[in-house]
């Protein structure tokens, strides 16, 4: 059985690596990860850019570097030119014994105010030690927007894994080869598992690539794998049934798109709706998968919490299977 599963998987991999659409799906996690990195800078990058004169006041440069990105220039003219560029950068330049702030005039007010405060703190010699603020931390170590996008992307990748399965089954249907497979010692279960392996590998490796590229390297990968594998069950089941009930790629792609509704619904419920609305989304496996991933990505989820979520997702997937089992059996005949 294992030999045949492997053979079917290798065949699909060979075909997918030659097929443009499949190849595109396979590299999507990398593209998503790069886009997330470009559009969501890390929390440490949430600061302002300042343009200063080189060798003018090293002490001030050292002080401001603690709180802002510093760019150094040789002359006032160069600083002026830099400030005039499209992005938001504030110049701090000497005049007599004081400093003045140079702006284009269209920078967000908060950035200008922040630059003014930094300059004032430096002039008043206020240090970090002087603060009396007490910090109560929620334990969140990662930027919320980035975490949300990565979490959403992991679920998206699992659906794409299902889509890969759909494409490979549709190929079998279009070539009418399922009947030929049925006349070999390959059981239908072996065939389905063989067809699903690529989707599972894609979900696992795509998600891990995403995690590493977006900088979530500190999380517990085993916990993440638990949630990915469990949430992949649903995508695999639906990928199989879409493949077996559709005769062409476009129809199947249209049907798979419907899966994005419960995915987005679950995410929006958690991110935007109040507690009293949450119960209306308990039926949605993506809701629980998103919650599980969120715990893993924030590094706060315990094994028991994740196992509970995994159990709920598994039960919901079994319920879905009960509904679609007949379609799967019929599609394989």
């Amino acid at each position: 059985m294992l030999k045949r599963i492997w053979i079917i998987f290798l065949r699909d991999l060979k075909v997918n690596l030659k097929d443009f659409l499949s190849l595109y799906i396979i590299i999507v996690p990398i593209i998503i990860a790069i886009l997330i990195n470009i559009f969501t800078p890390s929390i440490n990058d949430t600061t302002i850019n300042l343009a200063l004169l080189k060798c003018e006041n090293q002490e001030m440069i050292d002080y401001l570097e603690q709180f802002a990105h510093i760019e150094l220039f040789d002359t006032v003219e160069e600083v002026k030119k830099r400030v005039e560029k499209r992005d938001n950068i504030i110049g701090i330049l000497p005049e007599a014994k004081k400093h003045y702030i140079m702006t284009q005039g269209n920078e967000p007010e908060v950035i200008v105010e922040y630059a003014k405060l930094l300059k004032t703190f430096y002039e008043l010699d206020i240090k970090m030690d002087d603060t009396n603020a007490e910090i109560i931390e929620f334990g969140r170590k990662v930027p919320p927007l980035k975490k949300t996008l990565v979490n959403l992307s992991i679920l998206f990748i699992s659906i794409l894994g299902g889509m890969l399965i759909t494409l490979n089954i549709i190929e079998e249907k279009m070539d009418n080869t399922i009947s030929a497979i049925n006349l070999t010692p390959t059981t239908r279960l072996t065939f389905l598992i063989g067809k699903s392996i690529l989707g599972i590998f894609f979900s696992v490796f795509g998600s891990i690539a995403l995690i590493f590229i977006t900088g979530f390297r500190e999380i517990n990968i085993l916990k993440l794998l638990l949630v990915i594998l469990i949430s992949s069950i649903l995508s695999i089941l639906l990928g199989i049934v879409q493949g077996l009930t559709n005769d062409d790629v476009m129809n199947a792609a249209g049907s798979v798109k419907l899966l994005f509704l419960p995915l987005i619904g679950g995410v929006l419920a958690i991110e935007m709706l109040g507690d009293k609305w949450q119960k209306f989304f308990y039926w949605d496996p993506f809701y629980w998968a998103y919650k599980g991933n969120d715990l893993v990505l924030s590094g706060t989820g315990t094994w028991s919490e994740l196992l509970i979520y995994a159990g709920i997702i598994f039960i919901l997937s079994v319920i879905v299977y009960v509904f679609i089992a007949k379609s799967i059996r019929k599609g394989l005949e």
């Binding site: 065949r11 060979k14 075909v15 190929e171 279009m174 009947s179 030929a180």
Partner: peptide, 18 residues
């Protein structure tokens, strides 16, 4: 009913292994 994306030999090689 053969795999159109595989070559003739790849088609037969695949079935051989089953």
């Amino acid at each position: 009913n053969v795999y159109s994306k595989l070559t003739a030999k790849e088609n037969l090689d695949f079935y051989r292994k089953l």
